[in-house]
Design a protein around this nucleic acid. Structure first.
Lengths: 136, 136
DNA sequence: CTGTGTGCAAACACTTTGCAGGTGT
DNA sequence: ACACCTGCAAAGTGTTTGCACACAG
């Protein structure tokens, strides 16, 4: 059983061609992907509505999560921490301003922030922009 | 001359009713605002297209900037640091999960991050989620 | 007076939904 | 066999554009 099939089974979703294709693509790329990129790859084989519905079921079941972005379009990425049920997605993303790749930096942890009193922090996300190793 | 009029003049934009209204609203609220919120307030007096065009000219001239958000809609906020020409918007935003307000925390600075080698950092943005003083 | 801004309507892009037929388990 | 998934087409939203008129400088 492939890794994609495993993921689907773990999240109680049926194995279908679109789902396997999309998931494999996310697993291969290992970075966040925008709707337009996904459509470019999947729209030949599948209907657009199906792509959107697949994204929806993936985010609802916790396989993917929406990624913070200053770009126009919505982006999604594999959800590592969500596997365990807790939804502590303290993600650090790095967006390369040259090639446009948006990577999830798992090994970088978000530093503590000094919040003014009165604020209760639940979640923190960070978006770094600059040049990735390939482009610098 | 009002503060809004000053801002417009500084950015070489003509003073018109929509612009003054929108800008005053941003100055009063002093937090980021979503397109729908702006439309709620301005759509009675002005055309939707005008609101979008106003947002466009404001972002292009550097008065506003798009704000990072996990919400569905686009949000904008006044651009403080951009005044000086440099575009170092190292913003920390706090999104209240209860009331939905998205504030720009100017007094909180983004902590240094330990990036893997090869990455060149240009800009950093942070989105904190939780409860604001009013809601906690 | 001149060029820019605005309203209106239409166009456009993106996303969702209803339904009938197809597929996974 | 049954529930769920998919394709198709249509409907919704959100955003942009063309054009004629209005207004700021």
């Amino acid at each position: 059983m492939s890794r994609a099939e495993h993921l689907l089974k773990d999240h109680e979703l049926r194995s279908t061609p679109v789902r396997l294709d999309m998931l494999s693509y996310f697993l291969e790329e290992n970075r966040s992907l925008g709707v337009s990129q996904l459509n470019t790859i999947l729209a030949d084989k599948y209907d657009r509505a199906t792509v959107y519905r697949t994204l929806k079921s993936f985010t609802e079941s916790g396989i993917l999560h929406r990624v913070m972005d200053l770009q126009e379009e919505n982006s999604y990425a594999l959800c590592d921490s969500c596997k365990e049920g807790s939804h502590e997605d303290e993600h650090v993303h790095f967006l390369c301003t040259n090639c446009g790749k948006n990577q999830c930096l798992h090994d970088v942890s978000i530093p503590a922030v000094g919040l003014p009193s009165g604020y209760r922090l639940k979640d923190a996300n960070m978006l770094l922009e600059g040049l990735c190793p390939d482009c610098s």
